[in-house]
C-alpha cells in the first residue's frame, strides 16, 4: 500500500531507526509487540511529531499510548 506524503513524513521516524525495510511492515504491526517502540522511544516519537507536525501529544493519556501502537492511529494523532 502506497503511503501518502504525510504518512511518509511520519514513517521517516521509523525508517531512520530501522532502515527502509520497515516500510514494508509499518502499516500492519503493533509497534510495541514488534519491539519497534519502547517507553523511551515514545518520547522520541512525540518529539518527532511535535517538530514535524506541530502537535504535542499527551503521553499521560492511556488513549494516546494505545494509539501510538499502530501506524493508522498514530497518523490520526499526528495529523488527522
Amino acid at each position: 500500500m502506497a503511503l501518502t506524503e504525510q504518512e511518509q513524513r511520519l514513517a521517516r521516524f521509523f525508517v531512520q531507526r530501522e532502515g527502509a525495510g520497515v516500510v514494508e511492515i509499518i502499516t500492519t504491526v503493533d509497534f510495541f509487540q514488534q519491539g519497534l517502540l519502547d517507553s523511551l522511544d515514545m518520547v522520541g516519537l512525540a518529539v518527532f511529531i511535535e517538530k514535524e507536525f506541530k502537535r504535542k501529544l499527551d503521553l499521560t493519556d492511556p488513549v494516546t499510548m494505545k494509539a501510538m501502537a499502530r501506524f493508522d492511529s498514530l497518523c490520526t494523532l499526528a495529523f488527522g
Binding site: 518520547v43 512525540a46 511535535e50 517538530k51 504535542k56 503521553l59 499521560t60
Partner: peptide
C-alpha cells in the same frame, strides 16, 4: 517547552 512531555504522576 518544545520537546518536553509529562510522562506521569
Amino acid at each position: 517547552r518544545e520537546g518536553a512531555f509529562t510522562l506521569g504522576r
